[in-house]
Amino acid sequence: MANPFKAFFRAVQGSRDSESSLRPERPSGRPAASQSIVKAPAVMAPPQLRQSAALQQFVRSLDTNRDLRLLDLGGANAANIQFMTQMGTRLYSEDFFATLEDCFGDGDYYENQRDPARVDSFLIQTFSEQRGPFDGALVWDCLQFLRPSLLDKTIDHLHRILEPGAHLLAFFHADDKAQTIPQFHFKINDENSLTVEQRSEMPPGQAFSNRNIERLFEDFSSTKFFLSRDSIREVLVRR
């Protein structure tokens, strides 16, 4: 059996024979093992402004007459902080991707997500320090980069920390057969528009069809899909 490291170096030197041994054997919809998971996109797309009907409904669902607590998993940025705090809400910021990188980033990203110790550490870091319950959660596109088992646990935690009736805003890439999908940074401009900046590209944790997404949130009371012209599916889930 060919040593993968030798194969790698042969491939770097341009040996055609070794190319086949480098190709990852992967089941459809699954990321390859031992690959550099986070890739800077070949061409960094400029930030794009997009309308978001789901964001609009999310914002309108908030009862601003009382003190609200919102969870933002997309990492802190000035635009989101300003928008949400101007509405009088208290914002809890969590950098989901930074924690993912900390817990699973060394070595095989998706294989590491099978490790129970790492999974526990990730869930503790992401959810235990948060002071819920929350009146809403901005999950953005974070859920796409989790293996099914970790995804289920994450959804369970989100269900637990959200108030009944609270909404969760999540985005999924529309092409469920894509090998890699972009990972974005979302900045709120106003209640129905966002600036979307691509941060990197990664293989998705699994394929997300509409049926899969509905099944994912089956413990929640409703799931609403919003169609858009670009390749992002917006999903508003009610606890």
Binding site: G75, A76, N77, A78, I81, T85, R90, L91, Y92, S93, E94, D95, A98, E129, R131, H185
Partner: peptide, 14 residues
């Protein structure tokens, strides 16, 4: 408050 892109922050903002 001002937060630059690339900064990492975990916690609440009041």
């Amino acid at each position: 408050i001002s937060i630059e892109d690339g900064a990492m922050f975990k916690g609440s903002i009041d």
